[in-house]
Nucleic acid binder design. Sequence first.
RNA 1: GCCCUCGUAGUUCAAUGGAUAGAACUGGCCCGUCCUAAGGGCAAAAUGGGAGUUCGAUUCUUCCCGAGGGCACCA
Length: 588
Amino acid sequence: MKDDIIAILHGILGKEAADAGIPVELSVPDEPAFGHFSTNIAMRLAKPKGVTPMALAEDIAREALHRAPEGLFEKVEPATPGFVNFWMSPRAIQQAFARIAKDDLGKRFGRGNARAGATVLVEFTDPNPFKEFHIGHLMSNAIGESMARLIEFQGAEVKRLSYGGDVGLHVAKAMFGALQRRNDIPAVREESESAQLAFWAAAYVDGSARYEEDPRAREEIDVLNRTIFDHADPEIEALYAWGREVSIAKFKELFLRLDTDFVRNYWESEVVEDGLKAVEEGIAKGILEHSEGAVVFKGESYGLHTRVFVNSRGVPTYEAKELGLTVRKRRDFAFDASIVLTGNEQNDYFKVLLKVVDLLIPDLAGKTTHVSHGMLRFASGKMSSRKGNVITAEALLAQVSERLRGKVSERSMLADADRDEATEAIALGAVRYSILKQNPGQDIVFDFEKSLSFDGDAGPYLQYAYARLQSVRRKAEEAGAGKVSATGGAAPEGLQAFIATDAELALVRRLAEFPDAAARAAERLAPSGLAAYCYRLAVAANKFYETTPILKDEDAMRREARLRLIEVTAHVLASGLRLLGIRALERI
RNA sequence: GCCCUCGUAGUUCAAUGGAUAGAACUGGCCCGUCCUAAGGGCAAAAUGGGAGUUCGAUUCUUCCCGAGGGCACCA
């Protein structure tokens, strides 16, 4: 429908719009009084053409109606101060539905080809061994996984990557903390996985505190950092191996639970060499320089600031390692684009890094995009793993599940055995949706009671809408009322003519928006637009469900048509949810 | 001090420079012989302040106020 109108507008405007550099755009107004589609082209073109916006809008409206195939529009109207609003005829909407249903059967409705044939790396989550997997990582995971799926939906092959700091100062701090209680270690190693993790979390908190408070401890930790880096001490090596292993085992378990499949998990320890080599090259090329015993990049002439790449002890910092990672990625994958997702506190740092990459590795220039997410903030104050007041991803999910449990058991649609699984999926969906519905890059103020709602614009609402649609389908199948063509049986010709109520037509118009919504979210690398779309689709589906009898309708053809609409809606909703990383549940 | 984000109903979030700023939660009022009420409907409620650009500004520029982040050996 949208493409039809744009084509008509291009026909009317000829090359005037193109010459003026003004794109012909069509939007879907929130306000029903402004039509199904609306364009502002008359206002934008009035000045170059030397006419009033309203006069142009009137001309365009009249001409559009004149040029359109018979029966496409219900009406086309100019509106002050110069909009042109379009209302599709029911028949045009019905035909759109027939097309969507056909595409949907082919399981390709909504897919785009903006990234067809491209290989895109997406690095996200990035938990660090020796530290906890906290809700910040959960946030990165939710956004990154959704971005990955959106890009795949546009035809690209996506390689999911994670990168973790298994060497560096934070490790030295944790190791220092652990060495303070080395006598406990044999006992702890006999205990549960979670006790071992708790030991390391506490060790890190201790080590961090001592690093800040005690100059002598600080010196020891810096030395320890070098020792770890050099693999110089067997006892340290053994302790390190244990800590690293405990962390990584946990991460693997969580990745599985979060349904994210990384093809490669990079560790800082393995990119050190490439990083140092790149730094050498940078020095040779005069991009990096020695300063006060360290190797730095002076970013001031680029409007950036100076950053240290190798510290005065000869240990590469995050900068050099990230440089090594970039080189490494290029060696491991032939990629067209690489996306790195981090917290927004790294924005300035990444500008420096990407500038160095541009200067040092010209063939990678511009291929890497840094995307940042905001921080999780609490009414109660800031979370800091250094201070030990972090909320782990597991703790959050456990708490959300706990709140859901009562709600799930009140409802009888599920067998007891399935309730735990549903609770898990709803909890994950609720958390994911609350993260994804917001613009990425913004901080999220997190409040257990308030921000994680299970009603209204929230994950469970979408899952519920889906489950209800599926329930109707099941009942229809049980009753033998019409073959819902899940198995691929084509609907009888002309069925779409029975889609006629306002709620039905509005729902079809929503369905038609799906490809645009997915494409736009992928282009902007922002799942929030798709989350908003899924919500609006669910609203339209619920309205249809509430207002329109389906199984109870006496007319067999109409019943079949409505079942078909339900089937397609459920499938599109499921596709949308999948792109958000939220499981569509058959029953709730 | 310099740089980057961000200030929208009581709260949490929307709004490719467009129309009457859109939702949800909370509080108020309706809908139960009906396909899952985690639902549907009604009413109420907001752009931090000032100047500017524009036919049109939540959006762009600038100043002020406020919050967060970054600014050399952490990541």
